[in-house]
Design a protein around this nucleic acid. Structure first.
Lengths: 153, 153
DNA sequence: GCGGTTTAGTTGAACATTCAACTATCGGGA
DNA sequence: TCCCGATAGTTGAATGTTCAACTAAACCGC
């Protein structure tokens, strides 16, 4: 049974292409900066950030995966690397014997603290400096709408 | 010499977090759909799209890398895979003996044609359906500004 | 047409991500 | 208590991506 495709009109095409280019270049740029300056990809930085903001600088693996927007498998591999680097350590969960708790080490916190200013400067330069205050507001609303739309459905 | 970090204010923080979440979930979703329905990641789909829109359905490797937003190395590896799948073939460039030309095969075009409706539907559902026409316009301007800012500097 | 620099593209190794399969534990009934 | 489905997390293999090193050819100035 043939279903009519709702193709993108020229404006939508243009929007989609621009979005793809901008988001790809932005993330590639930040990723490369972070790799160069902090020796880790952006996804790993995100993991450390989430841990640093959690009470006791620790989280259950599942909660950490959720917070960092990572699959369980990806997080397992990532934490293994972060543990090898000495930035995170694993502990058994006292209330659930299946559980593991990822704890940010002091060394991990120090690494994060050293990397943060440069990274924030990058985000500012590459994103916020290019946009007007009104556009920043628009981007926030658009992103919040999208995030809700995507995770809610 | 200490340089003051221009930290993000709460509004900027919120914007950045929302943007990260939305763009990550959006791209992950489209990537998974494309992998499921067309057997290729989004980056490969992009390569095929660019080839399909080029005159003669072919491009020099460098131009293709530029068009698809890919590094040369990444493109080399990707085209090797696409070639193995029978969707692309390589030809020698007649005017520059260093050059290689990637050509979209009929089979590659057919695969793309089969995948496109589903993918476009995904883009529409996950992105455009969630936004008002005004927001789509805002997103286009923001993205174009950003793309120019990032590639121009 | 020589020699140095730039450009085109590939390659292999290291690293990151995905997917499916797996172990172990928890929790809620019959 | 026993069982069964759901949850937590890990693992290995296959796949993608990055980075640096490499070959080869084009370009440029003399």
């Amino acid at each position: 049974m043939a279903v009519m495709t709702r193709w993108l009109d020229p404006d939508e095409q243009r929007t989609w292409r621009a979005y793809l280019t901008a988001s790809r270049v932005l993330m590639d740029t930040l990723d490369r900066e972070l790799q160069r300056d902090a020796g880790m990809p952006h996804a790993y930085y995100e993991i450390l950030v989430q841990l640093s903001e959690a009470p006791g600088r620790q989280l259950r693996m599942s909660q950490l995966a959720q917070a960092a927007g990572s699959s369980r498998s990806r997080l397992s591999h990532a934490v293994a690397r972060l543990e090898a680097a000495g930035w995170v350590r694993r502990e058994d969960c006292p209330t659930d014997r299946r559980g593991q708790i990822a704890v940010l080490t002091d060394e991990g916190f120090a690494t994060l603290a050293a990397a943060a200013p440069g990274h924030v400067e990058g985000v500012r330069q590459h994103l916020f400096d290019a946009l007007s205050p009104a556009q920043v507001d628009q981007l926030r609303r658009i992103s919040e709408t999208l995030a809700e739309h995507l995770t809610g459905s």
